[in-house]
Simulated scan of single mutants.
Amino acid sequence: MIRTLAASALLLLGTGLIAISAVGLIRLPDVYNRMNSVAKAASLGLSFVLLGVLLLIPGWRTALVVVAAVALQLFTAPIGGYALARAAYRAGAPLAPITRYDELGGRAGEGGDEPARDSA
């Protein structure tokens, strides 16, 4: 009974985070904010869903598969999000008007991979 309630809570929390990620993908102003939303909320949501499945279907094989899937998800999703955002920056995707600081300097595409240097 308690295990089923805990699994239901994890599944509900995971699906809620995935839904928040989908809303962020639609509503956020630029590609960089969207990448952040998907990389963080969706990977954490999927991890919670997998942990909920582990509670519903206990066993060492299930545990092994879930641990491997969660580890791979938490390792690869932020790297993939970073790579996509970097590719968008290098391709010249515009920043949202609300963005106040571009740490690579200049307009998108001019800064390259080098950090901006002050001339003072």
Rank of each mutant, 00 (worst) to 15 (best):
M1F: 08
R61L: 15
A39T: 03
I57Q: 14
A7F: 10
E110M: 09
E110H: 09
A22D: 08
T99A: 06
T76W: 08
G105Q: 07
D30T: 01
L56S: 14
I79W: 06
E114V: 12
E103R: 12
P78G: 04
M35K: 00
N33G: 06
V65A: 15
P94E: 00
A69P: 09
P29N: 00
S8V: 13
L51Y: 11
A120D: 05
T15V: 13
L51N: 09
L25A: 13
Y32S: 03
T62V: 15
A77F: 05
R61Y: 12
D102R: 02
A88C: 07
I57P: 11
L54N: 13
R34I: 04
G14I: 11
R61W: 14
P78M: 02
S8I: 13
R107F: 05
I57S: 13
A96G: 05
L44G: 05
L104D: 02
P78K: 01
G105Y: 04
G52Q: 08
L95C: 00
L51F: 12
A96P: 01
G52N: 05
F48M: 11
L84Y: 09
A41V: 03
A19N: 10
A69Q: 09
V67C: 14
S37M: 00
L55Y: 11
G111Y: 02
V53P: 05
I98E: 07
W60F: 15
G106L: 04
R3E: 10
A42M: 00
A96W: 02
